[in-house]
Nucleic acid binder design. Structure first.
Length: 268
DNA sequence: AATGGATCCAACCGCATAGAT
DNA sequence: CATCTATGCGGTTGGATCCAT
């Protein structure tokens, strides 16, 4: 028996949202909330949309204080370090970046950071600057703390780490007491852009990096507390960063209640 | 100017989980 | 306890846009 569809796909609109739809949804939620039921909400307000689609639209775009684009290098570093530590748990990572959504973080990772970290070569100069899309233009000078320069996937942004003597990790702010902060790996361990175009060399360096993490992450005991002390409940460790699957004793993350305060110094 | 490839990102899909019954 | 339903989440896709030729 198959799973019941969440909505009648034949009778719901799909694809991009119109400004009118956005306005309907936004004003209703601002006035009445979601009513605790996304499924019935679109019918209530006369939207021919799936409840899931409404939820996604609200969470990713209509919600107040959402920021799009213009990721700072500091945010990039946080994303990379968390990805290395906990894998593709985008909601957790996004929770550390105020105003960012999991979808945004995920897209940013997939389109830029992954290339940074996993070998997009700096000498790819075909596209020195990326286009500035309308949403990005909207975000420029909106107090995001960025310079208003849209770094591209391959130019300044992509080459940022490549230009460094080695991948440089600023220290990650601990997310809870006793949380063993993923600490900057030895610089030489991730110098993946320096003559490491050879996959073998790169993998070796990654191995070193994760051996490093295997030590540092042993302190993640407080992961256990996330689910009432159950060491494995609620956590599929196969989904943890593939880079960390070899790590022994990796345990569950604690609840991440406080977003990382960007720009705050970190005591290690 | 036309075309094809690359890139980005909004949106969808489907699975896992939590909560209700 | 079993089943059903809604929600949350991560993976993937499709279309728009840009750049190089």
């Amino acid at each position: 028996m198959g799973r019941a569809p969440c909505c009648d796909k034949a009778n719901v609109k799909r694809g991009p949202w119109s400004p009118e739809e956005d306005e309907k949804l936004k004003s209703h939620i601002e006035q009445h909330g979601t009513g605790g039921n996304w499924i019935t909400l679109p019918q209530k307000i006369g939207l021919k949309r799936c409840g899931k689609s409404c939820r996604l639209r609200w969470l990713n775009y209509l919600r107040p204080n959402i920021r799009h684009g213009g990721f700072s290098e500091e945010e990039d570093n946080i994303i990379c370090r968390l990805y290395i530590s906990i894998g593709s748990r985008w909601s957790v990572i996004a929770a550390q970046l105020p105003g960012r959504t999991d979808n945004d973080v995920k897209n940013h990772w997939n389109t830029r950071l992954k290339k940074k970290l996993f070998g997009k070569q700096c000498d790819d100069r075909r596209r020195p600057t990326r286009r500035i899309t309308r949403p990005e233009q909207d975000n420029i000078d909106h107090g995001t703390g960025d310079l208003g320069i849209i770094s591209t996937g391959v130019s300044q942004s992509d080459c940022y780490w490549a230009q460094q003597p080695a991948l440089s990790y600023p220290p990650l702010r601990p997310v809870c007491e006793g949380y063993a902060t993923p600490v900057a790996p030895p610089p030489q361990s991730v110098s993946c852009y320096e003559g490491s175009q050879s996959p073998t060399g790169f993998l070796t360096e990654l191995d070193e990096l994760f051996q490093f993490n295997s030590v540092k992450l042993e302190g993640l005991d407080c992961f256990n507390e996330m689910n009432g002390g159950s060491a494995s409940a609620g956590m599929n460790w196969n989904q943890v960063s593939p880079l960390l699957r070899v790590v022994h004793g990796m345990q569950q993350l604690p609840p991440l209640e406080e977003p990382v305060q960007l720009g705050t110094p970190v005591d290690l």
